[in-house]
Design a protein around this nucleic acid. Structure first.
Lengths: 191, 191
DNA sequence: GCAAGGATTGAATGATGGTTCAATCCTTGC
DNA sequence: GCAAGGATTGAACCATCATTCAATCCTTGC
């Protein structure tokens, strides 16, 4: 019974994520999510007090997955320069794999309450990057700089540079190397 | 009579802009705009076919003003490095002067139709910056790079770096110089 | 002055979609 | 088996606004 309950909850989250990946946040009415999850509309409210709460959790889950993947890829590298290249490649690669979902997570208009979760998402990336930047500065690989500011600006740069390709559906093959070159310059990686 | 008509139109746009600057897009119901403009709700529809059309124009007007101010400031400078410093200072200074409006123009959730206007806004900044970057590359002041990509990434970096301070209401005094340093590194300005 | 025609009004309309709830269905403990 | 209590249902409810329109008011040309 407990199992059935939490299974429903999981199905609802999975359904919401699935609809976001196919039709974006705009396609995510509570009725549509419920139908896909195989429950009645009202049952959604046994698990989440409001729609915004449901989607806050959906965003949190999806974002965590993304941040984890990027963190894992970066952790395999030794230098700050290679770590950041891995960040860009993983982030962009995954975004281009699921462009609709990436757009929803990054930029699609959403409820203010859900938008707040997006800030958390971006902040998580920024903190991940700030850690690598700080290490690079400490080791002397990178010139002195405010790692927080650098990281925040890089997150913005990365997101903005991806929005065009995400809207178009594809990125030119030269986009990602060019973005890595930009980011290496911005970090002050010596050539 | 014509004069009265276009005066109403202007008052409606000004009212919408005023409410955006005070309460953000979220506070901009048609009724509120009409009341502030001193006209009846229905009269708004004598001037604009839909609310989205009204706000597309409001965004366009406000954005153009911002882009013009930034372009004017940059045009006073000689080198690409100085031009970009002027861009950052003007952009940030104006944003911090009207944080609610800046937030609405940059990041607040809005109708998709209005959101499209925001893309135009960001693109206008990117093209302005791309022009200066291309000139800097041509003159040899900056290393070879794709000016479009650099400009897009810089717009993202600038916007992201401002969202925190805009939410907080103020930026630390060191934020803007640090941002300029970041952008100079990203452009490859030689130290 | 005075009609004609467009401008203005603002309450009514309508669409959307989140949220509720009385009825029904299961599961569980005895 | 069988009640008790919680889970589930989905149609109805409701709030929010954008949008409309019949009635009214001005302006203008004669």
């Amino acid at each position: 019974m407990k199992a059935r309950l939490s299974a429903s909850r999981e199905r609802i989250i999975a359904a919401a994520l699935g609809i976001m990946a196919e039709h974006g946040y705009a396609g995510c009415s509570v009725a549509a999510v419920a139908e896909r999850a195989g429950v009645a509309t009202g049952s959604v409210y046994r698990h989440f007090p409001t729609k915004a709460d449901l989607f806050a959790e959906v965003f949190r889950t999806a974002s965590q997955r993304e941040v984890d993947a990027v963190a894992r890829a970066a952790a395999l590298e030794a230098s700050a320069a290679e770590q950041m290249a891995a960040v860009v490649e993983t982030f962009s690669g995954r975004a281009l794999q699921s462009p609709r979902l990436a757009y929803a997570l990054l930029a699609e208009p959403v409820d203010p309450a859900v938008d707040a979760e997006r800030l958390v998402f971006r902040r998580a990336y920024a903190e991940l990057i700030a850690g690598h930047v700080a290490a690079g500065v400490a080791s002397g690989e990178l010139p002195p700089q405010d790692p927080e500011l650098t990281a925040t600006a890089l997150v913005g740069a990365l997101a903005e540079a991806m929005v065009g390709p995400l809207a178009a559906g594809v990125a030119g093959p030269e986009t990602i190397p060019a973005l890595i070159a930009f980011i290496h310059r911005a970090l002050g990686v010596s050539p």
